[in-house]
Nucleic acid binder design. Structure first.
Lengths: 225, 225
DNA sequence: GACGCAGATGACACAATCGTCATCTTGCAG
DNA sequence: CTGCAAGATGACGATTGTGTCATCTGCGTC
């Protein structure tokens, strides 16, 4: 994890640098806003620690400026300003967390870990979907069951995605036709049946518990437990 | 935004409920761990506010339990326990933020907004990619330029994705062959050239500034500014 | 300015995907 | 138990996607 520490006081820098490194961060430091801007725009940091009291610029302005130029890494603000107003302002203007000095090192570390963890978790959640032993990866457009990759056609993947997003709930033919196939009007067709059939051939292979259930006269359900 | 407030003291509940509603949250409340578990597992909340001092269960245990059962919404801990140890423990065991009582309403609101905003931003970032006026949507597998949707084949999409993820940097043929086509050994082929050609026909259409540049003898670059 | 080669382009063939249809199977009502 | 209708299955043809090859173009060198 790459971390940018923006802090002008050498004592605090020294106080933080080693423990942060011990905690597994690759730490780089900037002692004023100008340097921080340069570093942050160039390198990709996983998290930033910003002291508000900088010699050349207000820390809040620095953060606003970074956000403007597309830096979206989480920012933890470190500040001697303890008032509610200051805290609220910091949190609203692009800071993701706010810690007042004096602070406990352990708490700083815990909060940093959290910022990073939250971001990873959110990405993970947005790009993957799991239903029982079924797993969809939307970035790679790959599905797997029990760890084994399924060789799905594009359409099959979309169909399975829809089923997974509605796992445990009934899905009718007309829902599928309009949502997956984008057919407003629904002519006499059995595309859905055929695709479900093909999908079953790949997902519910012999020896596995069948996940795609038929509800006669209604539609289909994907088992979710 | 749906918010679950887990708090046993009626005064604090009352104190918070209206302001939270005013801030735009649909608030539901639980006065002990059991009720909170039920509600949280059933409904999808965008954020949880949990008081640690519950009558039937320690709040930390509740959070651990929720995480276990797959609830991944961000949690803000509210607590009278002010020690560093308590705060660190709360933050490490599944809490995403920790506010000690007494607290300022404005700060609670600011921190809540932050939790939600962060999560949305991270999802957004993970599922979309923008390079100049080019935009890729990985969930829908759609690319657009200047708002206009491009009709790309699967392979073309993957190629464009690779170019975008390396925008501004040189991409050689052999990089593309191994990363996009998965070819370890690289026979004499011009697939890359052909696909770049086809991609250009859709991305760099007439009247637009060409984004896919050729570096003779080296490879290609996607312009990023 | 001519030449040579990297890259662009156009045409083709093969492969994968997708929707339709005809037929078979099976759950269920009577 | 029987018959029917919903759904499953198998096969086919149209369409689209993808890689190869032959040829053309134009950049950079001499």
């Amino acid at each position: 994890m790459r971390l940018l520490l923006v802090e002008d006081e050498p004592e605090i820098q020294d106080f933080l640098k080693q423990p942060l490194a011990d905690a597994g961060y690759e730490v780089e430091t900037a002692k004023d806003g100008r340097i921080a801007s340069q570093l942050a725009s160039a390198g990709k940091y996983d998290v930033l620690v910003v002291d508000l009291g900088l010699p050349d610029q207000d820390g809040i302005d620095l953060i606003l400026q970074l956000r403007q130029s597309g830096v979206s890494s989480p920012v933890l603000i470190l500040s001697a300003r303890r008032s509610v107003d200051d805290r609220v302002k910091g949190l609203e203007q692009g800071g993701d967390d706010y810690l007042t000095k004096p602070f406990a090192l352990a708490e700083l570390l815990a909060r940093l870990r959290n910022l990073v963890r939250r971001k990873l978790a959110a990405s993970e959640e947005a790009t993957r979907l799991r239903v029982l032993d079924l797993e969809l990866d939307f970035i790679r457009r790959r599905a797997s069951r029990g760890g084994e990759v399924l060789n799905l056609s594009p359409q099959e993947f979309v169909l399975l995605e829809y089923l997974c997003r509605h796992a445990g709930r009934v899905v009718t033919r007309s829902m599928l036709l309009s949502e997956v196939w984008g057919m407003r009007i629904q002519p006499d067709t059995n595309v859905v049946d055929v695709h479900i059939y093909r999908l079953r051939g790949k997902v519910d292979t012999e020896g596995r518990e069948p996940l795609i259930k038929t509800l006669r006269g209604i539609g289909y359900v994907l088992k979710d437990r």
